Simulated scan of single mutants.
Amino acid sequence: MNTEASLARGQILARGTSRCLLDLGFACVAEMPLRPRLRADLMALGRKGEVWIIECKSSRADFMSDRKWEGYLDWCDRYFWAVDRDFPMDLLPEGTGLFIADGYGAELLREAPHRALAPARRKSLMLDFARVAAQRLQSRLDPGMPRAGLI
């Protein structure tokens, strides 16, 4: 089965962006839960503890139907969009970062402004990030394992 065909366009953007972020020294968790009904497409954690959130938008309709993006700003140091080359970039708000992505990689086109997280929130996010990543790894190693609350 063609892996590319089985992935949704947003997942394809997330995969390429994750590859780029790895090259930039970040580890990523896709579909990272932040609070009930708020889940980041990608959360990236840098070597110095910096937290980035990247929302992947596959089309104008996808962008217009999801207006909760400002709710993510309190959960990261920098906020980015990941879109493909055909996306109408004039829709994207000023003061946010931008990656152009496909299924194989991404390019950072616009750096996002830095908004430092509060230390307590950073610690909480880093612990959640580690727990979600560890639980997902364990579920791959043991597919019969009961699902925990975070993943």
Rank of each mutant, 00 (worst) to 15 (best):
A120V: 11
D74R: 07
E70C: 02
A116F: 00
W75N: 02
A82Q: 04
G97Y: 08
W69F: 10
E70M: 06
A120N: 03
H114F: 15
A118K: 09
P113D: 01
S65V: 09
L73R: 13
Y104W: 12
R67Q: 15
W69S: 03
M89L: 06
R110N: 05
C76E: 02
K123A: 15
P88Y: 05
R85Q: 12
K68Q: 13
R67Y: 01
R67D: 11
G103D: 06
P119V: 14
A106P: 09
W81A: 02
G71R: 13
L92Y: 08
F87L: 00
F87D: 00
C76G: 03
M89K: 14
D102L: 08
L73Y: 04
W81N: 03
F129M: 01
D86E: 10
T96R: 07
W81S: 03
L92F: 07
W81K: 04
G105V: 13
R78L: 06
C76F: 04
P119L: 12
G103T: 10
S65N: 15
W69R: 11
R78Q: 15
P119Y: 09
Y79V: 02
M126Y: 00
F80L: 08
D128S: 11
A130G: 09
I100F: 06
P93N: 06
A130K: 04
A130P: 00
P88R: 07
V83K: 10
G105N: 13
A101W: 07
S124L: 14
G103M: 12
F80H: 12
P93C: 07
K68S: 12
F99Y: 15
R131F: 05
S124M: 14
F80N: 04
R131V: 13
A130V: 04
L117N: 09
R115T: 12
L109G: 08
A120Q: 10
L127F: 11
E111A: 14
Y104R: 14
L98M: 06
M89S: 05
D84C: 06
D90R: 12
L91P: 03
Y104D: 10
G71W: 05
P88G: 06
L109F: 14
A106Q: 10
F129W: 03
L91T: 06
Y104L: 14
W69M: 04
D102T: 07
H114G: 01
W81C: 01
E94T: 05
P93A: 10
S65R: 15
Y72A: 01
I100R: 13
G71I: 00
A130L: 12
D84V: 00
M64T: 04
E70V: 02
L73G: 01
R122L: 10
M64Q: 13
D90E: 15
R67L: 14
L92N: 05
P88D: 02
G71P: 00
A112W: 05
L117Y: 11
V83F: 08
R131C: 02
R121E: 10
M89N: 03
M89C: 09
A112L: 04
H114C: 09
T96A: 08
S65G: 14
A101N: 05
A82G: 03
L73N: 01
R78M: 10
R115K: 15
L127V: 15
R78V: 04
D102I: 07
A120W: 00
P113W: 04
L108S: 08
R110S: 11
G97A: 10
L125A: 06
A120L: 11
P119W: 09
F99Q: 08
A130C: 07
G71M: 08
V83H: 08
Y79H: 11
G103Q: 08
P93D: 05
W81M: 01
